[in-house]
Design a protein around this nucleic acid. Structure first.
Lengths: 139, 139
DNA sequence: GGTAGATAGTCAATCAGGTTGACCATTATA
DNA sequence: TATAATGGTCAACCTGATTGACTATCTACC
């Protein structure tokens, strides 16, 4: 419920500003591209926990909206590197701000120290569960 | 990630025992039927955050597997009341045990007191966000 | 008491976001 | 240098949802 509630709140904020209807999968893609500059389609698929075909569709979609671009890979002739465009980066920065608002609301409810602890506890569990988990929907 | 990791862990436990491949949506349905004895298809749809047509399909599926039954509503001739069968109730009880194991693993990582606090904090947020949130996938 | 509108549920068609499988081009390995 | 593995694409299909139309029953109001 809480995962859903927080994500819904963020998307409501984005929607209220008249942004394109990007889904969480797009957001997780942005986060990955923000953190690494050597992301291929296969790497994205692995990150999202979906097949490379599905990841390719998502990448094509984001490219058509000019949020990311596909560059030739510097050393591997088969691969292409996915990277955020300036528009994509701006979107990420803005989403960060809005997510901050959502987290602030939580901090206001339970107190910032408890929120920090909560972060740490959840992080500890994911680490104990194998370090990473898929970001796919639970359904 | 954590939502996904915990759910995956529970389903792995269920799968390891050779149970039918019930999905989280079925689990959320069981929880609702366990808590209330006046659940109609429309009420289930509202609980899951899906249309009544989709909820009807889930109910039909669970009925065909003999986990729930549809009884005529005592006062409303249009409606039908969904209720757990003995088989369904046994499944819920067993899933409770397995979920307990998953939570125990978390308690072992961060300590039981912190887990209690975490429950309370998440509950506080959902309450502040409007009391309830849909259980549908975030995607 | 009768009628208008709301509500519970079903059926059928469609859609979205994934999967599987086959394939090509390129790279790594023996 | 032949063979296997890998990155990516195309096409067909599947599943779990949605929208829309419909029936039967209930509720509210005159």
């Amino acid at each position: 419920m809480i995962y859903r509630a927080m994500t819904d709140e963020l998307h409501e904020r984005l929607l209220a500003e008249g942004r394109e209807p990007l889904r969480p999968a797009h957001g997780y893609t942005f986060r990955l591209l923000e953190a690494r500059d050597d992301v291929t389609t296969v790497a994205l698929a692995d990150h999202l926990g979906i097949t490379k075909q599905a990841a390719s569709k998502i990448a094509a979609e984001l490219e058509s909206w000019d949020y990311i671009e596909r560059r030739p890979h510097p050393t591997d002739g088969r691969a292409r590197v996915l990277a955020l465009t300036p528009k994509g980066l701006a979107y990420v920065r803005h989403a960060d701000e809005l997510w901050g608002l959502t987290e602030d609301r939580w901090a206001a409810v339970i107190g910032p120290d408890r929120l920090d602890q909560l972060h740490a506890d959840m992080h500890a569990y994911v680490t104990a569960a194998g370090g990473r988990a898929a970001l796919r929907p639970v359904w």
